[in-house]
Amino acid sequence: MEPGQQPRVGYAALYRVFFWIGLFSFGGGLLPWIQREIVTLRGWMRDEDFLPGVAMAQILPGVNSTNMAVFVGQRLRGAPGAAVALVGMLTGPFLVMLVAAVSYQQVLGVPAIHAAMAGAAAGALGMMLRMGVTAVRSAGRSFGPILVMVAVFVAVGVLRWSLIPVVLVAIPVSVAIAWPRGGKNA
């Protein structure tokens, strides 16, 4: 585990990556796209460094995608990197928002646009499902982690319990299960 060994990423490159992700982020489910750009294509981070950020981005308050931009930017270039990634992520949406605010009456009246947006959102959900499969595979094969995983899924996804109490119970249980292995691996 040597975080200092990562390639030094330029601010302009960091901004560009997050600008494009932000501009085309329809229907949520941005984390797999960020993973693809940062881990799969550019190798700026590894999956095992990226996935804890996915958990953190979801558990902490705030929007998942902006939290993830802060996490990745911070890992790569510290505080300025976090700011650059965050601003990059929000530039596109802000500009589109201004255009939409001026012209929204016309846009909303077109049903074809509704259909296209719903389809794009479904495609984005497919990306999220694929990322979930990766996360499930890397979460551990023994009984304990699988039980935690299924319990969290059922509580939040199926029963729709609120996130905070579920996570407050799940974290200590899951960490306790991981503790002996963590001690040996460290």
């Binding site: 996935l51 996915v54 979801q58 996360a135 935690v148 969290v152 974290i171 960490v175 299960i177 963590g182």
Partner: peptide, 17 residues
């Protein structure tokens, strides 16, 4: 390390949820 390993299944469950 234990916290990181403990968060992994929670992240997986949350993504699927």
């Amino acid at each position: 390390t234990a916290l990181e390993q403990g968060l992994a299944p929670i992240a997986a469950g949350l993504i699927m949820a």
